[in-house]
Amino acid sequence: MLSYKESTFNKLISVAVLIIIATVISIMTADAGTKAKKERVRMKMYYSKNDAGERVISIGLTAGSGRKMHGLKNAPVLLETVFNDSTTLLATVETDSSGLVDLYLAQDYKLPVNEDGVAIIMAAYEGDDTYRSASRKLEIVDLELDFNFEIEDSVKYLKVSAGKIDGEGNKLPVEGLEIDIGIQRLYSVLPIGSVETEKDGTGILEVQDDLPGDAKGMLTFVANIEDHDEFGTVTKTATEKWGIPVSYEVKPLPRQLYTDEAPLWMIALVVVTLAGAWYHFFLSVSKLIKLRKAGQERL
């Protein structure tokens, strides 16, 4: 027994030594590795156009992987546009503390586009001692969404038309575009369906009758395409009185056991009971007062 134990002990020691050596080596090599190898940087770029027509280019830089992934802060990003094979500098922007940056395009700013209306935007991060470079390219066509509200035989049809703007500024219908339709709610957009556009660029959605709206029954419809390869993210909203009105008035709560004001019967009961009790008390005290008076008269 003893020898067996000893041998296992020796084995354990040798295994432990091996493990320690292996760890030391791996740490050393890892150290050397990181010095030579820069960290990989991932870039994401989105283009979006909101309801008001504001166009935004959003860029995010992240480094690391898995749980260690973090935004790259204060990193300079070069934004360029490619037009007729020549590259023009748009701007240089710096990411914020979470590695994100949004660049708004002024309302009248025109991105240079080719005859098909495609604008090419390039974003590049040069990298530095610790981080590798990263870049991204977006090809964007300006898309316009429009709403049309129609009622036929008391069925509500929401028509959404999509048109892309070509190089000359003409609006061409887009076919086969899937558009998500929803209703703006307090916390988010409630999806009510999606349409696929026909040849003429319109898609039709039958809208349910039982959607609650605001106090007047107004519903805010949101049409949205999300991170589309050609158009980026485009959102359009419109308001129509197609909902069921919900009362926004604050009505006083009924007199209930759980409200501030008690039910009348309860108040009545308490008042009557107390009045009865205290009436007798004071009646009795009045007798004592009489008693006292009687005593004084005698004196």
Partner: peptide
């Protein structure tokens, strides 16, 4: 309370007692 035990006072005291007890 100036109780002297007169008939009147006794009556009042009894009334007061009875009402209170009731």
């Amino acid at each position: 309370l100036g109780y002297k035990g007169t008939k009147e006072q006794k009556k009042y005291l009894h009334q007061a007692h009875d009402i209170m007890a009731a």
